[in-house]
Write a protein that binds this DNA or RNA. Structure first.
Lengths: 178, 178, 178, 178
DNA sequence: TATGAATGAGTATTCATTCAT
DNA sequence: TATGAATGAATACTCATTCAT
């Protein structure tokens, strides 16, 4: 939702660049070169910098988009299935986790981060109301576990079965216990 | 434990460099320059490269030492307190988590990684025998949770209380449940 | 005085751009970006390049206009007051001096330069006839002194009083001496 | 006179680089690329930046050396012949004038600039004592005239004879007048 | 004719690594 | 063996200029 609507071609390039950047940083980590992003997007380097004046801006834009997507996804999940979904995404896209965790996320993207927190809070409250999750836990530790698991999934190369068993441990920890 | 024993001064330099590198990478992340490591170690850059022909080698050496330390620490802990210990270390030293998680850890340091796995396996078996941990869980998910929490601690800036609540969720998930 | 008369709006843009360029280069020096000129003129970058196909052309056009203005001013001055006027302008507008001095001025703007020379020659002749200036000096050194003082004023940041004392030395040098 | 004496090879390179830089900037102006300086000096680009961490530092170093040379030269001249000498140098080396005039000279090289001012002051005082220069003029205007003439010589492409006639005007202006 | 997005060569600077002293 | 100067590839970013809309 850009403040000034872009020309059609500019908008198309913006998207292309974001897509390419997401892929490149997912594959090669955040030290990948902007030149590589341009190459993969099929545009000249200047075009990348016209859209994102700084590499940091480019990274921030990716984060923003990813977080917004997660927030949108939250609507179709309960807390546990949202965990599964996010962790699966993280395993696939390096960036999800890297960026979820970016130290300065709150600094650079306070709104986007807050939205995600809100979405998870809703899921948590619902889950607690329905008795699926113990009322002992609060939002911060739930967010922290989500982030941790993403990071783990990212670096760990877990297979499907293992991922499941890991999440089961955490879910058990979140359920009400006598 | 070098195969050919080093001259005393060379050995001293090796240690100095490792110490400096640990500190530098902990502070500035793995993109910190080798030059900075040399400066902090009080040796010339050439000396660093004589001992560790590659930056990767230097990073690997740090990992190896850190893992060895963790293995040694394992002896004085039960599974839960070991979790607490490792996570606390990770929060303090960027490197612990970064390196625990390094994708190519198994590839580059297969032995060191195996040793840590063995140590955790011992703790796990003991914990299961004593009934502290459910016999449902197996080593891989325990390792994965440990790694995930380290990563989370690293990037999350958790305070003491939050860290405690997070671990409680996981511990509950690991305990036997009716 | 374009050879083909411009449409009214095009002419207006041309002037706007020249005004903006003069201001921008005066403030930021000749390394200021053409984009900044466009911004300040309130036109798109393409418009600047349509009117002045090259940055050099834009600079040349400014020079031309400035020189023409100086020539016009000459009519209202004697040699000494003209010196004062030009030097004061130079102190105010970086460009006057920079451009007066541009190495390729004669090459790129032979006519405009010749006109200025003519104007100064008239002033000089008049001054010599009236006995205000020694008949020993000739046009080239007078022009050279004028250019030098402009350059000096430009870079020197002279205050009013100093500027006066500097000019006094030169004027004394130009006056008839027993 | 570096604080820490350099290794012989490093010192040799430092000089080479300064020489090359002086030539390059003289020819192509201060926008010439550092790469060109390296090429002309016969060293790799990294070497230039090891010696002068910033392009500004390199320019400052040239200035410093040039100013020091001028100060040294002052000892062998009276005021008028010093003027001649400096102006002749400026005509030959773009840099002398450019740098003499550098807006931030006082900011970046206060000592070097002060030394030159001192040297000229000595020459001026002597000239005034001997009656060669009027006691009306003071140091600031003398410095300003020197700088202006350098700038003029730099950009003007004056031939020998013209240079002489220009200086004669200024010298006449400086002499005692009835 | 005006717009402003796209191009791409060019520039300062960094840093792992090599090698002469 | 240690030193630290030299190397040079790599990288983020700029800006004059072109061209599709």
């Amino acid at each position: 939702m850009p403040e000034v609507p872009l020309r059609a071609d500019a908008a198309r390039n913006r998207t292309r660049i974001l897509d390419a950047a997401e892929a490149v940083f997912a594959e090669l980590g955040p030290t990948a070169s902007t030149e590589e992003v341009a190459r993969r997007a099929g545009v000249a380097i200047g075009t990348v910098f016209r859209h994102f004046p700084t590499k940091k801006d480019l990274l921030a834009a990716i984060m923003k988009r990813l977080l917004a997507q997660l927030v949108a996804d939250a609507g179709e999940h309960d807390l546990f299935s949202f965990f599964r979904h996010v962790v699966a995404e993280a395993a696939a896209k390096k960036t999800v986790a890297d960026l979820l965790a970016a130290a300065d996320l709150d600094i650079r993207l306070p709104e986007a981060a807050a939205h995600l927190r809100d979405a998870v809070e809703t899921l948590l409250t619902t889950a607690q109301s329905s008795g699926a999750v113990t009322s002992d836990v609060r939002l911060p530790e739930v967010m922290a576990l989500l982030v941790s698991l993403c990071q783990g999934a990212l670096h760990g190369g877990w297979d499907q079965a293992l991922q499941s068993r890991i999440l089961d441990v955490v879910f058990t920890g979140l359920r009400p216990h006598s």
